[in-house]
Nucleic acid binder design. Structure first.
Lengths: 331, 331
DNA sequence: TTGTAAGCGTTATCAA
DNA sequence: TTGATAACGCTTACAA
């Protein structure tokens, strides 16, 4: 019903065998130029294009990459996804966007991707639980897994992420240089193991300067409201003299929420009364009303590296890449 | 190399023919329950799952929907994409995210989707140019096209979008009720034909109340900075007494930019000195610092309708659905 | 360079 | 309910 035009049809019209047609539409073709011309003409007339589905069945490669996402609300992810699809397309790959939620968990998603013969699965800023490894290690043949923008959980699953240790070194150096002395950390989730290690490295960097971190504030999730709520709660219970002079937020989304509360509800000036640093450099961070100092992940490099591994141009191993500090007036 | 386990393997282990196995894994199966049990056991042992690729080749249906996006920066799109993928998955469909850009235009995208045998193509808030219709109308068999959140360009391509006329009626009624009298419209792009008709209906609604629209401000694109620039320019050249008392912005993104400028650069109070209305109800619109009155598109209904048409549960024809006015303190 | 045969893993159809 | 044959449209040998 769909594409009725097959290589055979073109062959008949061009007066050649169908294998000539097939070869004409492939990379390392070896077809006499006269026949090639004939075929191309016939193909144009019939609007023939090779059926990639049939090709996939024969080659065992679909040129499709599945990308798993479990939270669409963080703007930095949009930027990554935009770049990912673009770069993938540049390489002749297509991106299957898989939405993880309560009805469709990591296991379902991976198994479904396997059934559809996707060439690879990228876990984008999402951590998968142990359940899946069981399936992985059993005979089941799954597409190769990759982790993007998170710490990988298993040694044989390569991950590509921003180097948090380096990032925190740069940030703390910047803050110390500005004279800040009483840092605190605003954290999204409590599970350090699955987290990004930012809190840890932040503390370590200060420790090496003989500064203890005042407090770790738990937001519970990476939403603006969580950042706002956590900040409100913290400021309410903390007398002015005990408050930190700089709050390192685990990401920009939290920072925005926290900053809003500090300014509008507690009348604080940023950065005089309290400074803020975020992470990710989302578009809003650049807005004049926030002007948030933040740290930008090396997006293009990260995505390039993942796709290189998927395409076999790079060896498979985990990598941490250095990002870039963006200084703005919130510090 | 990938999935070595085939229906034949399961059949051999279970001691039945491979067609029994195939049938066991399909909807309207007719298999004796004893054999079914045997097969299911064998399948579990071998970790067998039907190869959806092979199925697609035989059935001519991939259960994959392509969605074309040409601008990732507008937050409302995230919400749509999140819901789209979720709802599609619910129906056993998978979403292929296609990024339109200078290297990959509508034509390339549609042709590629056709080669991959996608079941349908959704143009999400993007307008395609005439060039493509030529291919469409020729013998080429393309997957059916649908337009989401935009006016459709061709009669045989169904579109599903928010009813702009209704929306503007509600908005203007609200504004008139609040006593506003000198409205202006901040527009993203100049091409009314491809646009959303919001400007037109806004004017018409005021006209029916004997109010002429003061001005149409052109931003040129749908970015925060464009909204800001356009607003700055407009306020600079317009004396206070000639300024509108309410600015209807074509979407929230523009509204945010415009509002920022009005407040921080011109010291205006919202809504006393100038009121703002947006469109889309992006998350930022709800933030206390904006509290933007806006109009929410009926996202779930729109997506449901599109997927119903794709799945054949609804007849194919264009639809305008009614959204919802969200009143906040910017008006 | 060209043609042939076998196969990818499933579905559709029809006969048993 | 079951089994067999013929697609689906292409690729990958290998032979001519």
């Amino acid at each position: 019903m769909r594409k009725v035009v097959t290589a055979k049809d073109v062959a008949d019209l061009a007066g050649v065998s169908k294998w000539i047609v097939i070869r004409t539409f492939r990379e390392g073709a070896s077809v006499s130029s006269e026949k090639r011309v004939k075929v191309e003409e016939a193909a144009k007339v019939l609007n023939y294009r090779p059926n990639l589905l049939a090709r996939s069945l024969a080659t065992n490669r679909t040129q499709q990459i599945g990308i798993l996402v479990d939270d669409f609300s963080n703007p930095y992810k949009w930027s990554f996804l935009e770049r990912f699809t673009e770069e993938a397309q540049e390489r002749g790959l297509v991106t299957v966007l898989i939405n993880l939620n309560s009805n469709f968990n990591h296991v379902s998603a991976v198994l479904d991707a396997a059934q559809r013969q996707l060439d690879a699965i990228v876990l984008f800023d999402t951590a998968f639980r142990d359940e899946i490894i069981k399936d992985m290690q059993m005979g089941e043949h799954l597409p190769p897994l990759y982790v993007l923008a998170r710490e990988g959980q298993f040694p044989d699953v390569p991950s590509v992420l921003c180097d948090s240790e380096q990032a925190m070194k740069e940030i703390v150096e910047h803050l110390a240089g500005k004279g800040y002395k009483r840092p605190a950390f605003l954290s999204g989730t409590e599970t350090l193991q699955l987290g990004l290690g930012r809190a840890l490295y932040f503390q370590q960097s200060w420790a090496s300067r003989n500064v203890g971190v005042v407090a770790t504030i738990m937001a519970g999730s990476y939403r603006v409201e969580s950042g706002a709520d956590a900040m409100r709660c913290f400021l309410n219970r903390t007398p002015a003299m005990l408050r930190p002079d700089i709050i390192m937020c685990e990401n920009d989304v939290l920072a925005v929420g926290a900053m809003d509360v500090a300014r509008s509800e507690f009348g604080m000036r940023v950065p005089q009364d309290m400074a803020f640093v975020g992470f990710d450099n989302i578009p809003l961070a650049a807005a004049p009303s926030y002007a948030l100092t933040t740290y930008e992940q090396p997006r293009d490099q990260m995505i390039g590296r993942i796709l290189d591994m998927i395409g076999g141009q790079a060896t498979k191993h985990s990598t941490r890449l250095r990002g870039r500090l963006i200084e703005r007036s919130s510090t």
